[in-house]
Write a protein that binds this DNA or RNA. Structure first.
Lengths: 419, 419
DNA sequence: CCATTTAATTCAACCACTGAACAAATAGCG
DNA sequence: CGCTATTTGTTCAGTGGTTGAATTAAATGG
């Protein structure tokens, strides 16, 4: 069994860097048309797609025929139309075609979900447990059981799982090794090997590995790209126990030379500040990490589970607790300083507060905006938006599943060839 | 005369986002083959190109025929071969085809140069003068005279100018307006309008404007990408009077949502540090800007021209001047702190010291590496390289000219259609 | 001098898109 | 109710560009 491990989701750019044969022509147009169907606000007709893409109606018909045959697209009920003419048959992404399996291992929960082509979450299941004392092999074993449940749920709904993606709160290298997941206590964990005993996740479908491992913050950012306020460039900050960021540039996740981009938690806020366990001093995590906020809020000993702490903080802040308000203000200032650097560097216009920061956005936002206003050179010409993420704690798992279906939409040929 | 102004060089991605007709097929393969010829270390044969790209030899021959007819490629002398078989005819980029005109306006000089398809600098001319007291219209007038000289030189060598690019040390928006060039004293200067009286620069060749305006740091980074140590992702820091950075990700310049990326000079090193004229506090420019280094080195009153100051500092440092050494060390530490943030964020493996920093690299490098070692989370697994730029002060102008020819190589159809 | 080897060209076949004509399905109007 | 206008979708000959195999070209080596 030749298992090829690919780490980290890569949405193939529709255009191959290599030779362009005539088959590529159809390949590119399949991707083009399917992409438009996916992006359209309402089911488009073949004629509308032709007008939109510049292809002829004849070609669009041929392409759509392929997509329908491959169960990627179905015809919607003819919708009430105004004006004369033969009524259009609307095209929608199939609700019973391929789907993506999204998995997540985090500090205090496991999650699995199934997302269909249209991006709808068709199954979702969370298993709460503190995973720090659990061995990696054990944790992954539990995850496989969750995945089996999800697979059964997908089958029951007529969906075909086309791949899976796993989000981990740490650095993942390009052979599937989790180099370091500090808050989980993992170091050099070979996820592929540990999962190798579980066949459902280790198949290779047409050259694409059945499972892809990626950083959790990256996947959360992807979910915001697809489910959230849509296209553009933005920074998605995940405030979990650690602080991670996903960088979306021009509708694509930027991963860096080795896939380790977005390690925002250890950007120095005050280079001479208190030492951080990373070895540096005055890192952002020392000011805006969950533990630091809790300590500053006087809740250090409260021993709250990591996933309820943000809501507890929001509750107290809403009630006007001065210590908590001050702690959040300080965290917001630190975040603002860091984010200003990022914006000066990358010229982004949007910052999304995700993970644990989402419920705290009302209190983090004002000090962040104040710092940005002061420190970002171009703020005068174009304002920067800071907003909470639309998806909550489930973002990473949903983003993982979404990355699977987005890969199909970006390169439908791979799926069609599988049949 | 319909002059379309496009600001900022954009290398077209060979694959159009729109419809893919059969003509696109040839278009893509022209770009593919020409790109391989440009990237090859020695003149490749048609057969080698076929093997490399996956196209058939028949197709490669047809494509090459088009390229030769369009004066983009010529056949090199048959080189001595080993082994049996018909000798290959090597293909090289034409030395008498299209060329790019590169222009630069900086604080104390103007520059123009001509670069051919192969990236060779075929003409170069610098005009030294302090341009701060000169009006923008006047400065651009002088630049046009320099450009005319360059055009004559290109003609004399049988080159055809296919476009021009202008580098400016400031923020350029997408209609050609220089929003702010602080060290030049420019604000809201409409470069296109001021150049409109000079026909040679305002033609539109086949939909592509004859002149493109861009930030100088971006163009310097591009020159490093093409002339320097080649492909990859890196941060190019230009230490002129201000500090700018060009970000190259996956062999492409990243420009940001509005083209204002790389404003690294105002990233805070110490958020409570001395106030900066940008309105923030403790910005990098306050520690590693040319004026700050000179002040720390005790040369504040020396009134050195901006372009000789770095060499003077290098001279003194080489002679062991303790004050200068200390000043450079402090600047290096500040640069190291900032660069660490950038690397944590973007996961780059290379930092290039360009502009005025290039001659100072021997002294800046050690403290930078020390900070990176300490603050970059992933430094343990993969080392970060810090090196001086290969091109000196001429980098921006050469990069500008190079961007013109790179655009032709990336999409040769535009040039071929022009005939 | 001829077999071997590699390079490049020629040519019929084929694939996918184009453009125009045609069929289908509706609304509006007398 | 029937006719026209209108828009959607399909059919089909035509075309551009690639493929693959055969052919020609130009060298080496025994």
């Amino acid at each position: 069994m030749a298992v090829m491990w690919q780490c980290q989701e890569v949405i193939p750019t529709a255009a191959p860097a290599g030779a362009v044969r005539q088959g590529s022509l159809r390949e590119l147009n399949l991707a083009l048309v399917l992409g438009r169907i996916a992006a359209a606000p309402r089911p488009p007709s073949r004629a509308a797609l032709a007008a939109e893409t510049g292809l002829t109606r004849a070609t669009v018909s041929a392409v759509v025929e392929d997509l329908v045959a491959g169960r990627l697209v179905t015809e919607a009920e003819p919708q009430p139309r105004s004006g004369a003419g033969r009524p259009a048959r609307g095209l929608v992404l199939a609700g019973d075609g391929p789907a993506g399996l999204g998995l997540e291992v985090n500090v205090d929960y496991l999650a699995a979900c199934v997302v269909d082509l249209a991006g709808e979450v068709r199954h979702h299941c969370v298993h709460r447990a503190d995973l720090r004392p659990v061995s990696p092999a054990d944790a992954l074993g539990r995850l496989v059981r969750l995945a089996a449940e999800a697979r059964a749920a997908a089958d029951a709904q007529g969906l075909i799982l086309a791949g899976a993606a796993l989000g981990v709160p740490g650095l993942v290298d390009d052979v599937g090794l989790v180099r370091l997941a500090p808050n989980l206590g993992w170091r050099d964990v070979p996820v592929p090997e540990l999962l190798a005993e579980h066949p459902p996740l280790t198949e290779v479908i047409d050259g694409v590995p059945a499972l892809v491992v990626d950083n959790e913050a990256n996947l959360a950012a992807l979910s915001e790209l697809h489910a959230g306020a849509g296209p553009g460039s933005f920074l998605h900050i995940s405030g979990e126990v650690g602080i991670g960021a996903g960088i979306v540039l021009d509708n694509a996740l930027y991963r860096g030379a080795r896939g380790w981009s977005g390690e925002i938690g250890h950007i120095p806020v005050r280079p001479d500040g208190p030492p951080c366990r990373c070895g540096g001093r005055g890192c952002l995590e020392r000011y805006a990490g969950q533990e630091s906020i809790l300590a500053a809020a006087g809740l250090a000993g409260a021993d709250l589970p990591a996933d309820t702490a943000p809501n507890r903080l929001a509750e107290l802040a809403g009630a006007g607790d001065a210590t908590v308000l001050h702690a959040l203000h300080e965290a917001g200032v630190a975040l603002g300083v860091t984010v200003s650097s990022v914006i000066n560097l990358l010229d982004l216009d949007t910052v999304v507060l995700g993970g644990g920061y989402a419920p705290l956005a009302p209190w983090l936002r004002p000090p962040m905006l104040a710092e940005i206003e002061r420190r970002v050179l171009t703020a005068a010409w174009s304002p920067v938006t800071v907003r909470p993420a639309v998806l909550g704690a489930t973002a990473a798992a949903v983003g993982a599943a979404g990355s699977v279906v987005r890969r199909i939409i970006a390169r439908p040929v791979a799926w069609l060839a599988r049949l």
